[in-house]
């Protein structure tokens, strides 16, 4: 965890918008705090690239089908930020990804939990990649970051209640195409 957190912080710094949002976690290791505290904006991309080329830097992921991270921010950065963006602002073009920042649909946990587990509209279901506890962690993260200050968070029971009996459909194509 220690190593990949360092790496993630370095990656986060590459995007100023995220760097403003991402305050160091209370439980983050000292080196991550140091990295975050450094005024590295001009060199952010260089730092991120250096982190990636550092032979000591571990993989961000592991080969198994499940997500290894347990921390909500880690899971967000790994699975969610590519669409909902580093700062939770969403994105748009022909179609759009909703912003999570200031999104009132996140006030109560049931709706975001349902979306993460089962997907909705274009959003794939992530239930088969994540444990109940991981869903709790990532939903709690989006409820309490990007300026959100929602206080009613899910529990493992909230998640278990919306899981289908047989969760076969999941994000993760075959790659056969």
């Amino acid at each position: 965890m220690k190593h990949h957190l360092t790496l993630l912080v370095a990656l986060a710094l590459a995007t100023p918008a995220f760097a403003q949002e991402a305050a160091p976690q209370a439980d983050a290791p000292a080196e991550a705090e140091t990295a975050a505290a450094t005024d590295a904006a001009p060199d952010a991309a260089t730092q991120a690239a250096a982190a990636l080329t550092d032979p000591a830097a571990p993989q961000l992921d592991d080969p198994g089908p499940l997500v290894a991270f347990t921390d909500g921010q880690d899971i967000y950065q790994y699975l969610c930020r590519t669409c909902h963006q580093y700062d939770g602002a969403g994105a748009s073009g022909a179609g759009a990804y909703p912003a999570l920042a200031g999104n009132e649909n996140l006030e109560f946990p049931d709706y975001p939990v349902m979306l993460v587990v089962n997907g909705q509209k274009g959003m794939p279901p992530f239930g088969a990649m994540l444990s109940d506890e991981q869903v709790v962690a990532v939903v709690t993260y989006v409820q309490t970051n990007f300026g959100n200050q929602y206080t009613e968070h899910p529990t493992a029971e909230t998640v278990a209640a919306v899981r289908p009996e047989d969760q076969q459909a999941t994000a993760g194509g075959s790659g056969g195409n």
């Binding site: 995007t15 991120a48 997500v67 790994y78 930020r81 590519t82 994000a171 993760g172 790659g175």
Partner: peptide, 25 residues
């Protein structure tokens, strides 16, 4: 790189420069 599954989300989230660096590494 040609990836589906969870790693596709990870790679997609990187900056273009970081993706290429990851491919090289």
């Amino acid at each position: 790189a040609y990836r589906f599954g969870k790693q596709a989300y990870e790679l997609s989230a990187l900056t273009p420069e970081q993706r290429i660096e990851r491919c090289l590494a």
